[in-house]
């Protein structure tokens, strides 16, 4: 299956891009949000620790799957399906 992943505010996460990072990933069926974070961590070493600590998303950060926080789905174990859209959310204010 194929999912689209976007990382908001890359500079905030210490990544080398000003604009959002967007990539399409081919995943095995049954893959979870945690699997996606592991893949992102291989592409951007250390990235996972900037979002997740002790198996939980950090305070004031979030991961959305099709616009829903994984806090209200199945957390990092949330299973993905073909065509899903994932957004790694930085803190913000407005």
């Amino acid at each position: 299956m194929r999912v689209r992943v976007r990382i908001m505010a890359p500079l905030y996460f210490g990544l080398d891009s000003v604009d959002q990072i967007s990539l399409d990933l081919n995943l095995e069926d049954g893959s979870t949000v945690e699997d996606v974070m592991n893949i992102l961590n291989t592409i951007h070493p250390g990235f996972k620790d900037k979002v997740i600590k002790n198996g939980k998303v950090l305070d004031m950060h979030d991961i959305l799957v099709n616009g829903r926080s994984i806090d209200f789905l199945d957390g990092l174990r949330t299973r993905l399906k073909d065509g899903d859209s994932i957004l790694v959310v930085s803190p913000f204010g407005g």
């Binding site: 505010a9 500079l11 905030y12 950090l58 305070d59 004031m60 950060h61 930085s90 803190p91 913000f92 204010g93």
Partner: peptide, 9 residues
């Protein structure tokens, strides 16, 4: 973290 993100973007 919100202060940091607000400052950058």
């Amino acid at each position: 973290p919100t202060a940091k993100a607000l400052h950058i973007y």
